[in-house]
């Protein structure tokens, strides 16, 4: 983990409101693992703003790395206004990456929208290790097919779904998964996207006995495991998305408050008092 001032050497608006930045850092490029993220100080003039986390999208070996982001609010808006040769204050690489065993042979990579960001880096690593993998990509519509071409170039067979049916399967990537999983039979599923989608994917993975790892998003302050603000609820108690994650094995995740309470009843080690706390000045 380092704090650096990284030179911006590339900027592209890959589709309206979605930008790709190339940032110089031999260290991050060398040390980053797919699934890790960087914590970025977004350049803004209107005072206080916490850093914003972005997945490492790709590395230029030995030299630079990329982030791919969508404008959501003031942080990403500020970030979308940077110019080539500006510098960005970055802490990274952070968190744990996707894991696989040495003898892994096949994988399914499922992304919803911006979920493609960490998975492209993973795809490039899997190609290098000669692992067969199948990208399965879900989009709103044909004109927003972020990184489809890149995945298609790298993957064994690429599946796509659009919500309006303008390309590939009509419907969600979850429908597509449920229709095809018994044919693909991957050893492992890696997924990134909205939490509702991840939860459904994990149910399917469970049903077919396939290991599944997902990248979870939470609000973050420090990004390095200090503030304990990015807690996710797991069967082993609270885990920090920035340090223990953002990649988690779905067999450990408790998805909702309901599950959480069930977890409590099963003695997951979380104290009941935590739920009844009213004052919280932490």
């Amino acid at each position: 983990m380092l704090q650096i001032k990284a030179d911006i050497i590339g900027k592209e608006e890959v589709m309206p409101g979605v930008f790709n930045l190339i940032l110089v850092s031999p260290e991050i490029s060398r040390n980053a693992r797919p699934g890790q993220f960087v914590h970025v100080l977004c350049p803004t003039d209107d005072g206080f703003m916490l850093r914003r986390p972005f997945s490492i999208h790709r590395v230029v070996p030995g030299r630079a790395f990329e982030i791919l982001f969508q404008v959501m609010g003031k942080g990403t808006e500020a970030l979308s206004r940077v110019k080539i040769h500006d510098t960005l204050d970055i802490i990274g690489p952070l968190g744990t990456g996707f894991k696989y065993s040495e003898d892994i042979r096949s994988a399914l990579l499922i992304a919803g929208g911006l979920g493609t960001a960490p998975l492209l880096f993973l795809a490039e690593e899997l190609v290098e290790r000669q692992v067969l993998f199948y990208p399965m990509l879900g989009y709103k519509t044909k004109t927003q097919m972020l990184r489809y071409i890149d995945f298609k170039r790298l993957g064994k067979k690429t599946y796509a779904a659009t919500e309006d049916g303008s390309f590939g399967h009509e419907g969600t990537v979850v429908d597509l998964l449920n229709r095809t999983v018994h044919n693909i039979r991957p050893e492992i599923i890696y997924a990134c996207g909205p939490v509702g989608m991840l939860k459904k994917i994990s149910e399917t993975a469970d049903e077919f006995g396939i290991e599944c790892q997902v990248s979870l998003e939470t609000k973050m302050a420090c990004g390095i495991g200090v503030c304990l603000g990015c807690a996710c609820v797991t069967k082993q108690g609270y885990k920090m998305a920035c340090k223990d994650g953002p990649v988690f094995n779905t067999r450990d995740i408790l998805w909702g408050a309901e599950d959480y309470e069930k977890g409590l009843a099963n003695g997951c080690g979380c104290d009941n008092q935590a739920l009844s706390d009213t004052d919280s000045a932490g």
């Binding site: 005072g47 609000k219 302050a221 304990l228 807690a231 609820v233 609270y238 935590a274």
Partner: peptide, 24 residues
């Protein structure tokens, strides 16, 4: 040991942030 509070535990607001870590 204290487990702390149920997430979400952070929220950025104008000129500051709210936290409800709960002394984990």
């Amino acid at each position: 040991p204290r487990d702390g509070n149920i997430p979400p535990r952070l929220c950025e607001v104008s000129s500051g942030m709210l936290n409800s870590i709960g002394l984990q």
